[in-house]
């Protein structure tokens, strides 16, 4: 008979980060998409009476700052937090991690049940995937603030101005910033599905773990 115990996996800062990230990325993707293809609002009012596109961009920029500093905070927590939040759990350093990845792939793609997954925090494949999304966060932040530096006198966005000459100009920066949005969209779809899937096949409470912080694992006798 299986014995189950509870483990406190995701501390409050991790959960706070996760949901703030969810909110800001969603806001950024929606407002960003609309910046790229604005709705056709036909009205005969004078321009001085409305400012919706300006507001839309403003929301994008506010969300961008929230997103960026939240991301920085998460990096910090990768050093300060518990072992499940540690930066090492994102990078497959051991052969054990690579073996686990294989197991996860078998489970996810071939729907085969191998040995039960041992990781309590992220499984190795999820960890690596999140690491790649962190790189995407970085890319989006650098290109975003790089573009933003053209419309700001503040020192902070100017720190990113180097990306513009590097990519050959604002147009290229904008194109890649836009294209990268789709990486976020696709990631979100797959991520949400896989969380449901693993909750279903593993029965360890992975969905609720990002709410209350607890996961359920088999007790070793």
């Amino acid at each position: 008979m299986k014995k189950i115990k509870r483990v406190y996996v995701w501390e409050i800062p991790v959960r706070f980060y996760h949901w703030l990230n969810f909110l800001s990325v969603t806001t950024l993707a929606v407002t960003g998409y609309l910046i790229g293809s604005p709705l056709a609002i036909q009205n005969s009012a004078e321009a001085s009476f409305s400012y919706w596109f300006g507001t839309l961009r403003f929301v994008h920029f506010v969300a961008a700052f929230v997103f960026f500093f939240n991301f920085l905070f998460r990096i910090y927590w990768g050093f300060a937090g518990n072992k499940y939040a540690n930066w090492k759990s994102f990078i497959p350093l051991s052969s054990k991690a690579w073996k686990e990845m294989l197991e996860v792939l078998k489970l996810d793609i071939f729907l085969r049940k191998g040995k039960p997954l041992r990781s309590t925090g992220h499984n190795a494949l999820a960890g690596l995937t999140y690491f790649i999304t962190f790189l995407a966060f970085l890319f989006q932040s650098v290109t975003g603030f790089g573009m933003y530096s053209a419309m700001s006198n503040s020192f902070f966005p100017k720190l990113f101005a180097w990306i513009v000459p590097l990519m050959g100009g604002d147009f290229a920066v904008r194109q890649w910033h836009h294209a990268m949005m789709w990486v976020f969209v696709i990631f979100a779809i797959v991520h949400v599905y896989l969380v449901f899937y693993h909750d279903y096949v593993e029965g360890r409470g992975i969905i609720s773990s990002m709410g209350g912080g607890w996961k359920f694992v088999e007790k070793k006798d």
């Binding site: 604005p38 009012a45 321009a47 409305s50 300006g54």
Partner: peptide
């Protein structure tokens, strides 16, 4: 930044 049509941009009039 110096375009005289800019108010229309901000107002979302395209």
């Amino acid at each position: 930044d110096t375009c005289y049509r800019r108010p229309n941009y901000d107002a979302g009039l395209f």
